[in-house]
Nucleic acid binder design. Structure first.
Length: 296
DNA sequence: CTTATCCAGTGTAGCAGGTA
DNA sequence: TACCTGCTACACTGGATAAG
């Protein structure tokens, strides 16, 4: 089915990864040829038409359809739900018919080459006061960062927003991780928090569609933990920038502690936090968008 | 070469507060 | 009061480098 906004979203949305959502939606919409034609028309109005069509060319819906069949379900309709949180992590919604003719819904969470299941604010893990103390260090670390980049890459245009690795970033992230670990015991409502991280709070059941450059893998049972054990979960450092979550000594998830858009951001405000070689920058946002992944 | 690792990045929505 | 503007938090993947 098409919502009021569906065709406009398909024409105009340029969020990262949306081309895979569109391709799967289109492929499943084969059961509604008239609507499918309208969607193809919208795809032709995108800037990346060729890429979307290429993904469609290797999107065989058979895996999805047979997974439904195994459960005694048949596909009767499909909707496009990009960025609609009300349906849980699903990007595409399948309307399915059971043997008794009751219509149900199963979502598809569509991903390309990443395992991140949820972006989560650091405020769930550390207190306002901890954030305040860490923020105080940001100006100092930012100037260290600029020194480091300048030493390694020279002119600002060689490194600003060029995704360069940084020891200073590692060091600041490490300070944040120390605070996360220190505070974990005191984090309230761990059941609610972990339910959100694992999507066990989803209003609609979902499958995960993991695209590669050749096709996709389907996972009908997303990994989770027994939420009654939420208070037994422990945390620790993992690699350079992750906090790992453990249950009975087994890693059940990991979270990348990260700046939302880099250590320094493009400056949109009138008064930049820093100007370096004529380039205006803002301090980064270290707490707003951490990446949580479930272990496979 | 391909795959894994690990930070870096973009787009959108909603809200608060200023202001025309 | 309607419209900006700045800001946070949410949604995703990209790309450089290392490892195999």
């Amino acid at each position: 089915m098409l919502y009021q906004n569906t065709l406009r979203e398909i024409r105009e949305n340029i969020n990262t990864g949306v081309e895979y959502e569109i391709a799967m939606f289109y492929a499943l919409l084969t059961i509604k040829p008239d609507e499918q034609a309208l969607v193809m028309n919208a795809i032709h109005n995108r800037w990346d038409t060729e890429k979307v069509k290429e993904i469609i060319s290797y999107t065989d819906t058979q895996q999805v359809v047979s997974a439904l069949k195994q459960r005694g379900l048949s596909l009767v309709d499909v909707s496009f739900e990009t960025q609609n949180d009300e349906v849980g992590p699903a990007d595409v919604l399948m309307f399915v018919k059971e043997q008794n003719n009751i219509i149900g819904k199963i979502g598809l969470s569509i991903k390309y080459a990443n395992t991140c299941t949820l972006n989560v604010t650091g405020r769930n893990f550390i207190t306002d006061d901890q954030i305040l103390q860490l923020r105080k260090l940001l100006p100092k670390y930012t100037s260290l960062y600029i020194q480091e980049m300048t030493k390694l890459y020279g002119d600002v245009n060689n490194w600003f927003r060029k995704r360069k690795p940084s020891k200073v970033t590692d060091a600041f992230i490490d300070l944040i991780r120390d605070e996360v670990i220190k505070n974990w015991k005191k984090v309230p409502n761990k059941t609610t928090l972990l339910s959100a991280l694992f999507h066990s709070d989803t209003p609609i059941e979902f499958f995960v569609v993991a695209y590669t450059s050749k096709g996709y893998f389907l996972k009908t049972k997303p990994q989770t933990i027994d939420m009654r054990r939420a208070d037994d979960v422990t945390v620790g450092k993992y690699q350079t920038s992750y906090v790992a979550f453990y249950l009975d000594g087994e890693m059940v998830g990991h979270m990348q502690v990260k700046f939302n858009n880099g250590f320094v951001e493009k400056c949109k405000k009138l008064k930049p936090d820093i100007t370096h070689q004529g380039v205006n920058m803002s301090f980064g946002q270290p707490f707003s968008s951490w990446n949580f992944s479930v272990e496979e």
